[in-house]
Design a protein around this nucleic acid. Structure first.
Length: 609
RNA sequence: GGCCCCAUCGUCUAGUUCGGCCUAGGACACCAGGUUUUCAUCCUGGCGACAGGGGUUCAAAUCCCCUUGGGGUCACCA
């Protein structure tokens, strides 16, 4: 068939489809997905712009489709795909080979060097590897969340490993705190220091034998060498290089030492570190999020793997552990990107294929710099203590670098697991927005059940000294009603106590806030109004039917030709001491008849002047 | 400074793979209305972005290059 004929035919098909669509008929299946999508998407807009269906079709056909014909004929792009779809027998498959970025499905890399019995595992294994030198950082929490979500989505394993090779700063209580924080968020793990697992131990300090063996192996093969340079020499070297605007890397002085000689010196007690011998050439990695990243090995220094004390260093142990624990995917912060060539080189030295790396964008503070302790609240613990619902934390964290779709901002953990794809994580950093976080916390509280909100608020109420747990339990229904009255006004659990404090205050000691007092005193007749109202209200107080009294009160105000605020502002001040807040009849019910009467009588005096 | 990464409303983001669904969508914040006894919620509307410049193409937010800007990292830390 001639090109021209094809084009004509295709355009005819398109025109027909558009007409079909414009007339609201179902589109025939045979027409191909591309065209259908096109028409479905474009037509409504055209119609919205005030054109009739016929005119809209013409616009589309002429302005939009008309001059695209030659591309169609060449079989390119979407139109080409459309053509191929229309002609299933036509040749396909020019784009057969695709890289890992485009196969959304399953980018797991098989291991290349099956050391005999090691099976090729199809199960993704991901890990979170915090170092217990502080509480769980909010950025670390997101890293954990993403690793966890992907493992769960793929039916893989998620494990926890404690990176405590820094003996000075690592503390057991931080380890506990981190585990607790993860559990609080609802993240669980299949293998870890507390639950064990087949490829443990999962605490680096318990794996030193393994590192020592690996180090000696590398030393024996010459992939690593002993370095006897003193700290002083290294410092001087660094200073010199920095001043000369050069990369302040190790100069390789000990690189060429005779290995046997070095071994003897070490045996004689001379302090030595183990350095990795970085080969010439380039090191590349195919980052899941960023694509190919190439480093010139000249930029990678002969880094230290083992301290002179014999303790191994992060870049070394992380690789050993990831190999031993059969880690297939590594999702971690972007700050690790420049570490990666060192690690890739190590994998090569062990003849292993590296895992698939995904370097997550950094979470930034208002100053656009990496979120750090200095920037404010950065530990998960802080948000927990402040009364953020864990679901909101999870949701908000997931939104830093990822989105469920083009519209949804509030979603559940289950939805995250169902949809999370690291390939669609944004490569650019995100500024942490506390405002939006607060909004989201409120969103979760408003939509949560009363039972749960009441339960989660209780510790804050107790901590504020309003009541004991026992007292709240004893008046369970009352407490719940108090929470119900404020549920949509609080954004954090911790905001509840201040809002219900008026219920716990002694009547005579209720504090009138300035704005409440001012509002009440705007009304000259306040005392008279209140007196009359109290008289009217008293017999209706027991039992108090909130809805009925509310209606009746409004009628009462109307009858006396008063403005609503003339009664409500003094009344609100008298009962709650605040200018805004709960429905007053709800407050009356919560307070009980006696206290309502008492507070009103007190107000007659307190608001008199 | 070297190397590396990044660039859509003030902020979080969709759209970027594979160029035409974009007259660039949503959310927070902000502004204006409505509902309400007030506050909050809720509803309606508004403001508001493809960093700049070159290419490639019939067509560029999307691909390429340059510039600019921002960030990360350069330890016997992780």
């Amino acid at each position: 068939m001639h090109h021209g004929d094809r084009v004509a035919e295709a355009l005819e098909v398109e025109r027909e489809l558009l007409l079909v669509r414009a007339l609201e008929k179902p589109a025939p299946e045979a027409l191909g997905v591309g065209v259908r999508q096109l028409a479905v998407a474009r037509l409504p807009r055209q119609l919205e712009h005030g054109r009739g269906a016929q005119a809209a079709v013409e616009v589309l056909v002429q302005a939009y489709l008309g001059d695209r014909a030659h591309q169609f004929a060449r079989g390119q792009g979407r139109f080409g795909a459309h053509r191929r779809a229309l002609r299933p027998l036509a040749r396909r498959g020019e784009s057969a080979g695709r890289d890992s970025r485009s196969t959304g499905a399953y980018p797991l890399r098989p291991r290349t060097s099956p050391s005999s019995e090691e099976p090729v595992t199809p199960t993704p294994r991901l890990r979170f590897a915090p170092s217990p030198t502080g509480h769980l950082h909010i950025g670390g929490a997101r890293t954990a969340l993403f690793n966890w979500a992907y493992a769960r989505r793929m039916g893989g394993k998620f494990l926890l490993r404690i990176e405590d090779t820094d003996r000075e700063r690592s503390r057991p209580e931080y380890e506990r705190s981190i585990l607790e924080g993860l559990r609080w968020m609802g993240i669980d793990w299949d293998e870890g220091p507390d639950v064990g697992g087949p490829l443990g131990p999962y605490r680096q300090s318990e794996r030193y034998e393994r590192y020592k063996a690996a180090a000696e192996e590398l030393l024996a093969t010459g992939a690593a060498y002993l370095c006897f340079c003193s700290a002083e020499r290294l410092d001087a070297l660094r200073a010199e290089r920095t001043q000369a605007h050069e990369n302040p890397a190790y100069d390789g002085k000990c690189r060429t030492l005779d290995p046997a000689d070095s071994l003897r010196r070490r045996a004689a007690g001379e302090p030595a570190v183990l350095r990795f011998r970085v080969p010439a050439g380039q090191t590349r990695l195919d980052d899941w999020i960023r694509g190919e990243v190439v480093f010139d090995n000249k930029e990678v220094e002969d880094w230290v793997m083992v301290r002179s004390s014999g303790d191994p260093i992060y870049n070394f142990v992380v690789v050993i552990d990831d190999i031993d624990m059969a880690i297939t995917h590594v999702l971690r912060g972007e700050e690790h990107l420049t570490n990666t060539p060192k690690q890739v080189l190590l994998y090569q030295a062990f003849a292993r294929t590296p895992p698939l790396f995904a370097h997550l964008p950094l979470m930034l503070g208002k100053d656009k710099k990496k979120l750090s302790k200095r920037t404010g609240d950065t530990s998960l613990q802080d948000y927990r203590d402040k009364g953020y619902p864990p679901e909101a934390v999870l949701n908000f964290l997931a939104l830093q670098g990822w989105a469920l779709d083009d519209k949804t901002t509030v979603f559940s953990l289950a939805q995250l697991v169902e949809r999370f794809d690291p390939h669609h994580v944004s490569p650019s950093g995100s500024i942490f927005d506390p405002e939006k976080f607060l909004w989201m916390a409120g969103e979760y509280i408003r939509h949560d059940t009363l039972e749960r909100v009441a339960e989660r608020c209780a510790p804050f109420v107790v901590a504020a000294g309003l009541a004991t747990h026992a007292e709240l339990d004893a008046r369970r229904d009352w407490y719940r009603a108090a929470v119900a009255a404020e549920k949509e006004r609080i954004r954090l659990y911790s905001e509840l106590p201040a809002r219900i404090a008026y219920l716990f205050a002694k009547d005579a000691e209720l504090v009138y806030q300035d704005d409440a007092m001012a509002a009440a005193k705007k009304h000259a007749e306040r005392v008279a109004t209140l007196t009359a109202y109290l008289e009217w209200l008293a017999p209706r107080l027991e039992p108090l039917e909130a809805a009925a009294v509310r209606d009746a009160t409004k009628a009462w105000v109307k009858e006396r030709a008063l403005a609503m605020p003339a009664l409500f502002q003094p009344l609100r001040c008298a009962l709650t001491g605040a200018a805004g807040g709960v429905d007053l009849f709800e407050a009356m019910r919560l307070l009980g008849a006696e206290r309502v009467r008492a507070r009103l009588e007190l107000a007659l005096r307190r608001l008199a002047e």
